[in-house]
Nucleic acid binder design. Structure first.
Lengths: 149, 149
DNA sequence: ATCAATGCAAAACTTTTGCAGTAGC
DNA sequence: GCTACTGCAAAAGTTTTGCATTGAT
């Protein structure tokens, strides 16, 4: 699985006449191992623990490339932080974001997506990516009545 | 229309023991007149042209309050800029964002939204706000074959 | 050997905050 | 008169960029 993603990324790089580097491999490995939402700073600290000389900018640049390759998805929840996660088959693109604890639950509703695509096409729009985002209170935070912010 | 929105905002302010000020009224007026997506800086420059002593921070603070009141909606398209637009009845919350020209087309699909709410509820999630965002190429940009970025 | 990638630091960017002065209630 | 609001500037936060050096092809 890790090898497969890495190969796809290297293929993407060579097609664009870019270079396969240690740091880019480290970022890919970390994303595959994590296999969940993360953001640049978390990844940076994680990698830095094992490889003291990796730079902030390099992680940004690698993630941008990975997003461009389609192997990783960029997610923007409106809190000013760009999140990333490994893309996968049967990927869920629907997010429930809890406005209390910030937790993200993913779900999927193929019926809805099919319907939306149909509408978009009828408006002459060629869809490349898709995101549904619901904000509210998750089951857990509904229990705690007090919302202290 | 402008009066109605302004009254609703003033009501919101007094409920929270906040004050109705010249600057807050200016921001509400501008949002009602514009009646389209905008962002802080555009609004700031627009207001500053007529009222030289309005501050950047004040516009930020007023828009945050307006969003909190529900009279204005916050929209995040993932480019790091928070956009705002006047909320309205029968409001559309579904966006087609063209990745070439950056244009935003809004549409609405009640069926889809109802279906999504049902799914969220079945997951124990209490929905407060809703957003669907499709990225791709609009009709116009599909015509121009070359994508130069 | 060439040219891209790296790490660092500084810059750029949007948004927030601290504070002295001002204005609404 | 009290307390919130304003404008300014500075701070905070994320992301990008410039540059000399290193490393991949």
């Amino acid at each position: 699985m890790k090898q497969q993603v890495k190969e796809q990324f290297n293929h993407f790089l060579s097609r664009k006449h870019l270079k396969t580097t240690l740091q880019r491999n480290l970022v890919v490995d970390a994303m595959v191992e994590l296999d969940r939402h993360t953001h640049v700073d978390e990844l940076y600290l994680l990698l830095r623990a094992k490889h003291p000389y990796i730079g902030h900018a390099t992680v940004y640049r690698a993630l941008r490339l990975l997003a461009e390759s389609g192997l990783v998805r960029e997610i923007n929840l409106g809190d000013g932080i760009t999140r990333y996660r490994l893309a996968r088959q049967g990927e869920r693109r629907d997010y429930l974001v809890c406005s209390d604890c910030g937790g993200v639950t993913e779900f999927e509703n193929g019926l809805v997506e099919k319907e939306q695509l149909k509408r978009a096409h009828s408006l002459g729009f060629m869809v490349e990516s898709f995101k549904i985002e619901l904000k509210g209170l998750c089951r857990h935070c509904q229990g705690r009545n007090s919302r202290t912010h």
